[in-house]
Amino acid sequence: MATIAAHVLESTEPYIIDVGRTYYRELNNQIRELAAEGVKRFVLKNVMGQRYLCAGLSHEISVEVHGTPGEDMAVFMDGPKITVYGNAQNAIGNTMNEGKIVVHGLGGDVIGYGMRGGRIYVRDNVGYRVGIHMKGYFDKQPVIVVGGKAGDFLGEYMAGGCLVVLGATVNDDRPIVGDYCAAGMHGGRLYVRGQVRAERLGKEVKVFNLEEQDVQFLTPILQDFAHTFNRDLDIFDFGQYCKILPVSSRPYGNLYAY
């Protein structure tokens, strides 16, 4: 690899890659090597479904993605900030540990599977199985905020962290969350800006009104979300929200014990 010009490292100018049909392995290796050499900002143009973008990267870099990134973007990611100008495909933020993903468009299915830390903001609707198996541990508390609506199995088997669905950026006749919402949930918090019918919910959860501490927790997240998308969103009407929490603790704690 050619030595990177000093002005690229020192300046705030981004390193621009015209991706086109470059194979994903080559692209990811290139980003990894450049990040290791000290490049802080990347602009990826013309992205065409390359998989595993920024997989496992732990550098403090920011990556702008123009085009459509492929499956499993930011899998195991541990620090970078990725902004997608377009729609994301499936399984973004899979087992992500730290960092931030911002999607200016639609999100696919299985967003933030087993996510352990960091944040994901999706401006519009997301697909099925968003935030399943999310987990949290002391200060590692992942957050997913969805500006639109979510499909079935939202927060299935959720164990920690926080999921927020706003239903604010799209206007369609779908319900704000799909069926089997929070099925098997046993940790974490799920906020929905609207009401969720009881038959759509898993059997392990109950619906609550927001309390003062919820408002305090949510306000900076929502401000950041609105600021990120540069939109004057009417999302601070906390009376409209509901909170979904598991009502059992370690329900299977004795499954393998006498």
């Binding site: 479904g49 492929g70 499956e71 729609n87």
Partner: peptide
Amino acid sequence: SEESAIRV
């Protein structure tokens, strides 16, 4: 199966 394939 994938949006990117259409966008190409």
